[in-house]
């Protein structure tokens, strides 16, 4: 079953067509990787899928509902969460607070003015679970601003997981992580496969080919090829356009 369907999506900045008639289907349960050279328009695509940017034309359908014009908050509630390529966290808050805030977003009203939120066990427990998942359990009380780059990347993922998404949009989750952290994150994504549908943007080809059920290749705002890892590896157009340097 198709969970996410994108049809003829277009977005330009002036004369530059960053998303140029792009169509894409993501089936429920799959890990769908999107690869492409720098500046291909991957982040811009994620921004449009998550509702941060409005496309010029085209449509985005999630679970059968047209969400092209709905705002970010509604999309998150519908089960569409994302991580950012450029770490976007609450610097002054601790790791636990960062994640608990995401849990709070889907657990009841936030118009509560009296009870200390730090004492809400339900929020903290769920947040701790997410932190443990990404391997940050022992960093729970550290302010995000004081974390290492790799830890921030892990936290970014924990926050997205805390939204309990049905579809997770991951924009280069491995970028800037050390080899050990990367290994751990790849294992985590492997474990998440099947539970959560994922769109993964990643430059780390080893990780992509190891994880992906399907791969789409994005060049100049268009999908130039789409298929299973083997297919993509063999596709001559892809090899020429993108994998060229790595193939040899």
């Amino acid at each position: 079953m198709t969970l996410l369907a994108v049809r003829d999506l277009r977005k330009s900045y002036g004369a530059l067509a960053v998303t140029d008639g792009l169509s894409l289907d993501v089936a429920e349960g799959e890990l769908h990787a999107i690869i492409g050279p720098n500046g291909a328009g991957k982040t811009t695509l994620i921004a449009q899928l998550s509702g941060q940017l409005a496309p010029d034309s085209g449509s985005v359908t999630f679970d059968g509902t047209d969400i092209t014009r709905t705002d970010m908050a509604s999309r998150v509630r519908a089960g569409l969460a994302r991580s950012f390529q450029i770490t976007t966290l609450m610097p002054a808050m601790t790791a636990l607070e960062n994640v608990a805030l995401a849990v709070q977003g889907r657990s009841g009203s936030s118009f509560r003015f009296w009870r200390p939120v730090a004492a809400e066990a339900a929020l903290n427990d769920q947040a701790m679970t997410c932190l443990a998942q990404v391997g940050l359990a022992d960093r729970a009380d550290r302010p995000a601003a004081a974390m290492s780059h790799g830890e921030k990347r892990q936290l970014e993922l924990a926050v997205a997981l805390a939204c309990r998404p049905r579809l997770l949009l991951l924009d280069e989750p491995l970028a800037g992580t050390g080899p050990q952290e990367a290994e751990r994150l790849v294992a985590l994504l492997e474990a998440l496969k099947g539970q959560v549908t994922m769109v993964l943007i990643e430059h780390d080809m080893a990780a992509v080919f190891a994880l992906a059920d399907r791969i789409s290749v994005l060049v100049y705002g268009q999908i130039v090829a789409s298929g299973g890892p083997e297919e993509i590896r063999q596709d001559p157009a892809v090899r020429a356009a993108y994998l060229g340097e790595e193939a040899c």
């Binding site: 941060q52 970010m72 998150v76 950012f84 609450m90 805030l101 118009f111 003015f113």
Partner: peptide, 22 residues
């Protein structure tokens, strides 16, 4: 220090992140 305060602080820290978590 209540839920409301944490959300308000969140909007101060990063509006984009707040929208991205709903």
């Amino acid at each position: 220090h209540a839920r409301f305060g944490r959300v308000l602080t969140g909007t101060r820290e990063s509006e984009l992140r707040m929208r991205a978590i709903g």
